[in-house]
Design a protein around this nucleic acid. Structure first.
Length: 259
DNA sequence: ATGTCGCATTCCATGCGA
């Protein structure tokens, strides 16, 4: 089965690309981030018409996540537990019934955290703490789990074309990277790094300063796997060509194949 | 240091978030 993740940077602006990618990649499920609309404004009819089921957790203007899937998502949870006051729509989870056994799948839009000298950075770190707690709880179920999304974390220097440019950025600061390692240390496997040590693999290129033309990218979109999912990992691919489409998202899809 | 985009509003210009 194929599971993909993509920060689309407005689902309404990117509907054409989204339908093109679904047709081309044929994923069993696609996790979306930054849909940037409320549930009622999600282009549900067009996507259902193309043959995918839709679960959304939207928000006005910013953030918002969704999961598209061939089979209906079950046991759906909206929002990351651990802070009742948090109103940002950044997490949606459910169970995909598959022939070869179920997979629990979460779509994650982890806070950006910039600028770091504001309340945005502690919010990011606290959100990572909550995600770690939630993942720890889910791992106790010992089931196949996939946490897919825009983590807004550059895990290592090899994950940036110009790592020196990011040393004071919330995506690369030591506490950010430490929190990401803490998540992995629960026993999760980062899918791409389970398949390759190659540098130069990016999932985001800024709209500004010709970043795409100069291949000045960073790798911040990740798929984290429980042991039961990692044991089934066959391959991971980055759909880099999507960044070259007309009026693209600044992120590209990342997809994995499970046996 | 940003050569950009998308959203929303105070709405054809500006602020915010990324």
């Amino acid at each position: 089965m194929r599971i993909a993740t993509w920060n689309v940077n407005s689902v309404r602006q990117r509907l054409g690309h989204l339908l093109d990618f679904l047709k081309e990649a044929q994923p069993d499920a696609l996790c979306l981030q930054e849909i940037k609309c409320v549930d009622a404004d999600f282009p549900r009819a067009e996507i259902e018409e193309a043959g995918w089921q839709v679960e959304t957790h939207g928000q006005k203007t910013f953030n918002g996540v969704a999961i598209l899937s061939r089979s209906k998502l079950e046991d759906v949870r909206r929002g990351l537990p651990g802070d009742e006051a948090d109103e940002q729509a950044r997490y949606l989870e459910g169970v995909l019934p598959m022939g070869s056994g179920v997979v629990r799948l979460a779509t994650i839009y982890l806070p950006n955290g910039n600028p770091p000298n504001t309340e945005k950075y502690p919010y990011k770190l606290d959100w990572m703490r909550r995600l770690t707690n939630h993942a720890r709880m889910l791992l106790e179920q010992e089931e196949a789990l996939v946490f897919a999304g825009d983590y807004n974390v550059i895990p290592e220097p090899r994950d940036a074309r110009e790592p020196a440019a990011w040393v004071n950025d919330a995506l690369f600061l030591p506490p950010t990277r430490a929190a990401f390692r803490g998540l992995l240390n629960l026993g999760l496997t980062e899918a791409l790094r389970a398949t390759t040590d190659a540098p130069g693999l990016y999932t985001f290129w800024d709209y500004q300063a010709g970043a795409w033309q100069r291949n000045n990218g960073i790798r911040i979109d990740h798929l984290l796997l429980s042991p039961q999912a990692a044991d089934r990992l066959a391959s991971v691919s980055i759909a880099k060509h999507v960044r070259g489409w007309e009026k693209p998202s600044d992120h590209v899809p990342v997809m994995l194949e499970l046996n």
